[in-house]
Amino acid sequence: MEKAKVYFTDFRTPVGTSWTAKLQRLCIAAGIKNIDFDKKFVAIKMHFGELGNLSFLRPNYAKAIADLVKEQGGLPFLTDCNTLYPGSRKNALEHIECANINGFNSISTGCQIIIGDGLKGTDDVEVPVKNGEICKTAKIGRAVMDADIFISLAHFKGHETTGFGGAIKNIGMGCGSRAGKMEQHSSGKVVVNAEKCRGCRRCAKECGSDAITYVDNKAVIDKDICKGCGRCIGACGFDAIRNEQWDAGDLLDKKMAEYAQAVVQDRPCFHINMMMDISPNCDCHGENDAAILPNIGMAASFDAVALDQACVDLCQKAEPIKNSQLGDNLAKPDWHHHHDHFMDSNPNVHWKETLEHAEKIGMGTREYELITLK
């Protein structure tokens, strides 16, 4: 497979030029206008941010993309699917209310919001996965699959379970219905090292299944209730919780790639990553920690695998921010340096498997040509 083209630009702009205008120029240079949008339904997949989180992408960026689509005669809508865990986005009514509170509405974005898997997260389509090794089919939100054209607009950041969140995670996990998210997360369950547990209860606050109780001030996880989502691992600051199944992280990454394959196969797609406010954890949290890396820029490509690989490489070259989770870890005298910003921020993560598996099943290539625009 020949190298994919990934277009990149930083956030430097002259007086009188906005970031949204620069984003539009990037997408045009990357070839978005080569897609036939005329009278086509266009799903723009993005994360609306959990209430309390302020690192999600602003709605202005969604409007920049929606305006480009409408200029070409397309019919855009913003979409995301409901969450597996109880939060402010667990059903369509709360999800849209959350989006509105965070600034997403038809005026600010220039298009409507449709929750991909319906009112209760049950409106999905079982899609065959081309070359799927683990998931032969994927449960994808119906509105996502009903669209003629798919655009991913992702906040590229760290992640407490998958290492980073970019295009593939935005697509694979984000477009899975509640049942689809459950399937991706169900590879393993977690166990507690009682000697390390401090009884701080942070894990219980993050658990979306009420699976964690306390005995003698030590966390105890009910495996019959646990969904294996791994949020408690990221919440624990004492490394007291880990995956019981050693390859659970690998399987999550691979399933996520296969779900992304189900979404993008057999229709026109375009992908954008915004490398800004690079928080250590997912925007699904009701808060966000300080960025671990400086704002790097924005990138776009027709190939989601090449795009994520390019963004990973750009992030690895960046200088860590000292007053951050990554910076604090690197400053510890006994820290085991992974020489990998994502693993040094969250040492239990896996991320390379996502890109390797996505390439293996034919979703795209990790080989890319980076074309830098001013």
Rank of each mutant, 00 (worst) to 15 (best):
I115F: 01
A358H: 00
L84Q: 09
Q184F: 04
D38E: 13
G327N: 08
I241S: 09
G327L: 03
M298V: 12
P320S: 13
R198I: 12
F8W: 11
E183K: 05
A304K: 01
W335T: 11
C232P: 07
D239F: 13
C175E: 01
D328K: 14
N295Y: 08
S186Y: 09
S18P: 12
F11P: 09
I272E: 00
L330W: 05
I171K: 00
A299H: 01
A331M: 08
G163L: 02
D117F: 02
L307R: 00
F104K: 14
G199Q: 12
I278H: 08
I44S: 07
N131M: 05
D277K: 15
C269T: 15
C98Y: 07
D289V: 07
N243G: 10
M363P: 00
D222I: 08
G362K: 01
K33R: 15
Q24S: 15
S152L: 01
D117V: 11
A240Y: 11
I32G: 06
R202C: 13
G237K: 15
D266F: 05
G234E: 06
G163A: 06
L68N: 11
G176Q: 05
A29W: 03
I113W: 04
K63T: 10
D340L: 06
K45F: 01
H155L: 04
L75A: 09
S88Y: 05
Q261M: 15
P333M: 01
A248R: 09
Q112M: 07
V264Q: 00
A30W: 09
T161D: 04
L84G: 08
A290S: 12
L75R: 15
I149P: 01
A21C: 05
S177G: 10
G362P: 05
A300Q: 06
V127H: 02
G199C: 09
E97H: 08
S88L: 02
K45L: 04
A235L: 02
N53D: 14
E244W: 04
K189I: 14
G176P: 01
A310M: 02
A143I: 04
D123A: 08
A304N: 05
V127W: 02
Q261D: 02
N102P: 13
L293F: 10
K205G: 14
T13F: 03
G16D: 10
G172I: 00
G297Y: 09
M343F: 03
S152V: 05
P59Y: 11
A29F: 03
A99H: 14
I171C: 03
S187I: 03
A154V: 10
W335Y: 15
D38T: 14
F11A: 09
D36N: 15
W351V: 03
E359W: 00
N91M: 03
A154W: 03
K120V: 06
N288A: 14
D277W: 05
D117M: 08
I114M: 05
A248T: 12
A310I: 00
K130I: 10
C98H: 07
C282M: 08
L54S: 14
R201F: 07
A66G: 11
I44W: 07
I233T: 08
T213R: 08
A304T: 02
I212F: 02
P280E: 11
M1G: 15
V15I: 10
N193F: 07
D216R: 15
M145A: 04
